[in-house]
Simulated scan of single mutants.
Amino acid sequence: MKVMVLVKATEDSEAGLDPSPEFAQLLEKMGKFNEELVAAGIMLGGDGLKPSKDGKRVAFDGKSRSVIDGPFAETRELVAGYWLWEVKDMAEAVEWVKRCPNPMPGPSEIEIRPLYELSDFEEMGTPEALKRHEDLRKSLER
């Protein structure tokens, strides 16, 4: 089972990089945790995200597109970083997250979301569409 593990943004993460010794210690702890994930064969990818002031959103309404510049107001709705993990089930993902160092100086949250698998779409997709998605997935793995 693949899961996306989302580190929710806080006021601290939205403020940007912090040159303090505490931040350096946090980077060290997170690096060690990432090494554990890789050694266990769990981590497929992941990164931290720059603050929303550096981002953009594209809003869709029918054929219309509009670009919205950051920063975005609702910090609690933003993501500050992510991992992509391969785990046997949600319980294993939860256990790994519970071992994670607090990713922020203060209170924070990490959200775990399972990814759809191609089998989830078998009843509604055409054989051609399903094959196209499977071929793309295989191409990305190479």
Rank of each mutant, 00 (worst) to 15 (best):
N34F: 07
E109R: 03
V97R: 01
A59H: 07
R99N: 11
G55Y: 05
L27V: 02
A59M: 08
P105W: 10
D54R: 13
A129P: 04
T75Y: 14
D47F: 05
G46E: 07
M104W: 04
V87W: 11
V5Y: 07
S108R: 07
R142K: 06
T75C: 09
G31T: 15
T10Y: 03
C100V: 14
C100L: 00
L17D: 12
T75A: 09
E134K: 12
A91H: 12
I112L: 03
I110P: 06
D47G: 03
K29W: 02
S66C: 08
G81I: 01
E74I: 13
E77G: 13
I68Y: 04
D61W: 07
G31E: 08
P107T: 14
F23A: 06
L140H: 01
M104R: 11
E141A: 10
M4F: 15
K53Y: 01
G125S: 08
K98F: 14
R57W: 02
E117Q: 15
G81M: 06
G48R: 08
P127G: 04
F121N: 04
G125Q: 10
G70L: 00
G48H: 00
R142Y: 09
W85K: 00
S64L: 14
L49P: 10
L130E: 10
E36I: 09
L78W: 00
S64K: 05
D12I: 12
M4K: 02
D18Y: 09
I68D: 10
W96N: 10
S13C: 11
G41C: 08
V5A: 08
P127A: 06
M104Q: 04
V94A: 11
